[in-house]
């Protein structure tokens, strides 16, 4: 009877968890620092320089199919929340890529927000515990990672996460 009870408890706990979610140990932890060179000649960009403004950091690659799917969503978020409302800064870091391929992809899919490239060792991606592309991190104005989305981001999820970061109605204060 005891064994059956144990199994029941195990199933109840197990079924409550989302099998598609891998919790990042970096949530509510300081975001690892990074410094990249802008692909369009913007010069050096770093997380340190962006401190004080929430950051939407997207890891992507020109070889990644889901990145095509989410490109328009990120661009729309950039236009609305970065350029228009000045609520966040949107930055993309291409992984396992070349500047030429990344720029070609950006042009084809209308990515106009600042883009940089991870190094050959993938240091930035590894420091963020990235499993693959795309992954998007939401970093608050103090440089703390508050949320992470694995896979192509949707308009609803990016809006909700940005509102949370900015402490706007519809989202809790970070």
């Amino acid at each position: 009877m005891g064994a059956i009870g144990g199994l029941v408890v195990l199933f109840v706990v197990g079924f409550k968890q989302d099998p598609y979610t891998v919790q990042s140990p970096l949530i509510n932890q300081p975001a690892p620092p990074w410094e990249i060179t802008g692909l369009r000649g913007e010069g050096r960009m770093s997380l340190e320089a962006l401190k004080g403004t929430p950051v939407v950091l997207n890891f992507w690659g020109s070889w990644c199919a889901a990145c095509m799917e989410e490109a328009a969503v990120l661009q729309a978020a950039y236009e609305e929340f970065d350029q228009k409302k000045k609520m966040v800064r949107v930055v993309g870091i291409a992984m396992n890529d070349t500047p030429e391929k990344a720029l070609e992809f950006a042009k084809r899919f209308g990515k106009k927000y600042p883009l940089g490239l991870d190094d050959k060792e993938g240091d930035i991606a590894i420091s963020y515990g990235v499993y693959g592309a795309p992954e998007t991190f939401f970093i608050d104005r103090l440089g703390i990672i508050r949320h992470k989305v694995i896979g192509a981001i949707t308009p609803e999820s990016i809006q909700k996460a940005i509102q949370k970061l900015a402490g706007q109605p519809g989202g809790d204060k970070p």
């Binding site: 396992n96 050959k120 060792e121 993938g122 240091d123 590894i126 499993y131």
Partner: peptide
């Protein structure tokens, strides 16, 4: 996988 190669480099 390329990702594993990068992890080995790290």
């Amino acid at each position: 996988a390329l990702f594993s190669a990068q992890m080995r480099d790290k």
